[in-house]
Design a protein around this nucleic acid. Structure first.
Lengths: 354, 354
DNA sequence: CTGAAAGCGCTTACAG
DNA sequence: CTGAAAGCGCTTACAG
């Protein structure tokens, strides 16, 4: 047995005694600092390995008065949607849990319809020194630029909500978008017949080729083609998010068609529901995204049939905790951490935790 | 402003200085120990309140070499079902996260088909001293007796999986059983027509009047009556859990009836699915409980249509973390913490986290 | 009822 | 390249 069971008894003191050095030298090796002869270093490392030494985190953080600072770069809650309230809540929750351990979390919120505000806040993060960053890379190019700067400074960063492939992030925490669209189709399939018509609705101001809504749409369509169902699927891309615009576009899209089901690829589903209600249309099944106040109102009254949710609060919470575990406990972190794909109905919504 | 922003600078030393006493006396007041004159105590408490003093948890746990011990009293994994593997995993996960802070978790597993084993393990817990207990009160009377003993010793305890009303537990963490049955009915309602027949199946060895499966059945029935649907609902209580017995009973229950949907009130749904498959019955919709290996196999192949899950792993995780937060951070704990009611299908099961 | 001192297991200057 | 000493903010005997 090389294993040591009296873990509690092994500390820097014991290592120093065995290596015939002072604890300061042990500390230097432990933190990979310079100023230790290779010979001493090797000897100490051997002892550390042999004893399977685990540093006492509490003593470490107590002695080193250093406070670890985490920066959070996510969209602010807007009048349009309070979706980002959930991740923020999760962040704050994690913050409360770990602040006793000397961790500080600072929030930099930007306007998700305004690239410049993202850029400005990213610059603010870089102006100061942070030990880790959690961000929602809403703007792909700008985000890439930002994380490259982080990389240069050796600042670890984690993405939530959507991923940016090709970066060196510590982790991506969020949905598997394709799969969630696929599931949406599967649910749809329960509620309609083969000959029914489907309308996919994308409502978003910003919409480039990498947009994550398109991944959901892909998944949605894939379900039907993979299962040999040749449903008739129409599509409406709506770029203006105000109600009159949406109304106009929807009216157009539904004209002369016999749509039985609408799949809205994001949280704007409540606007669609409002339109259907005001138009007195009652026989269209509605599936959309996200557990937000506006949507729940319609879900309750069964105007929306299903909401697909991806635990935005937990994304924020996990993001901070991953960073904390990485920085404090040197824990290894999953490169991608997919959120569960939750289905919310009027029956279970009261038990849902975002 | 009575608030103090330099929280970091306020410690026992500062309090002692202001009160003109030694830090030992401050410590006595902080921990409500005897041996301090009322006058001194009041003075110190006033200062503590005024400064909004928050003890440094790391220093506290480091100085007090005392290790906090938590006992976990839950069923063991049996050959019949590995359901309890999930809570155990959650417990271990929490344990790993907090062991650096001087918390120890000891597991006492019992056989859920054997009251005597519960009794024996409960006695083992009481023999030693623990600072907190997490238990699944599978046997109501025995559990009541046990927690009364805890109460007498001032040991806080938390229930998971099912509640025991009338006790003084710190918290109940688990499903709202009635609601989950209600949801089961709601899902059922999507998949069948008004004239279709339903069969409720309870499979359990132990089954008294307080049994939690009955709460699910109640909820299930309530949905239909509350929504004015007069479905024909039959019921099969199966007390022997081996396959031949279940097969016999199911054959009987399905005889001469035109059952379109079966609702199994617990994780034994896989046995029912096996029966249906072996009997070549393909047109019966099947809804049941729990994300366990046996069930997932059938779910994947769409032999089971829906599984309702209640995050057993998180129940174990939360249970330990609640106790930890209570013991270490003196955090206030929710008296009941209902788990979300998750719906699992063949599409989203791979993203489900138990 | 109260206080001075040692110590928890580390890190941080500082001195050599 | 290395070590002795002070200190992080508490708790724990021990002495009075």
């Amino acid at each position: 047995m090389t294993e040591n069971n009296d873990t509690e008894l092994v500390g820097v003191k014991e290592i120093a005694r065995r290596a015939n050095v002072s604890i300061a030298t042990v500390d230097r090796v432990l933190h990979n600092r310079t100023g230790v002869s290779l010979k001493t270093k090797d000897k100490i490392n051997a002892i550390i390995a042999e004893l399977d030494y685990r540093p006492n985190i509490m003593a470490r953080r107590l002695a080193s008065k250093k406070v670890l600072r985490i920066a959070v770069l996510i969209p602010s809650v807007s009048s349009e949607t309070d979706y980002w309230d959930a991740p923020l809540t999760g962040v704050s929750q994690a913050e409360a849990e770990i602040k006793a351990y000397g961790i500080t979390v600072e929030k930099f919120l930007f306007d998700q319809n305004d690239k410049a505000s993202f850029h400005a806040q990213a610059r603010n993060v870089l102006k100061d020194y942070y030990d880790g960053v959690l961000l929602a890379p809403m703007f792909v190019e700008e985000s890439k630029e930002f994380v490259e700067a982080c990389q240069k400074r050796d600042i670890p960063y984690i993405f939530i909500n959507s991923d940016v492939p090709g970066t060196n992030c510590l982790s991506y925490i969020g949905p598997d978008l394709y799969r969630s669209g696929y599931l949406g189709a599967h649910l749809a399939n329960y509620l309609i017949n083969n000959e029914d018509k489907i309308l996919i609705v994308n409502i978003s101001q910003e919409m480039d080729n990498h947009h994550h809504l398109l991944r959901k749409e892909e998944g949605f369509r894939a379900y039907f083609s993979e299962n040999g169902k040749s449903m008739s699927i129409a599509k409406a891309d709506i770029r203006r998010t105000d109600y009159p615009s949406v109304k106009k576009e929807l009216t157009l899209a539904l004209q002369a068609k016999d749509v039985r089901l609408i799949f809205v690829t994001n949280s704007r589903v409540s606007v669609v529901s409002r339109f259907l209600e005001e138009s007195g249309i009652r026989d269209i099944v509605l599936i959309g995204y996200d557990f937000i106040k506006e949507n729940i109102d319609y879900l309750k009254r069964q105007k929306i049939d299903f909401l697909i949710c991806q635990k935005p609060q937990e994304q924020g919470y996990r993001g901070i905790m991953f960073l904390y575990n990485h920085l404090v406990h040197s824990a290894s972190i999953d490169r991608t951490y997919y959120m569960p794909i939750d289905i919310i109905t009027c029956e279970n919504y009261q038990f849902y935790r975002n």
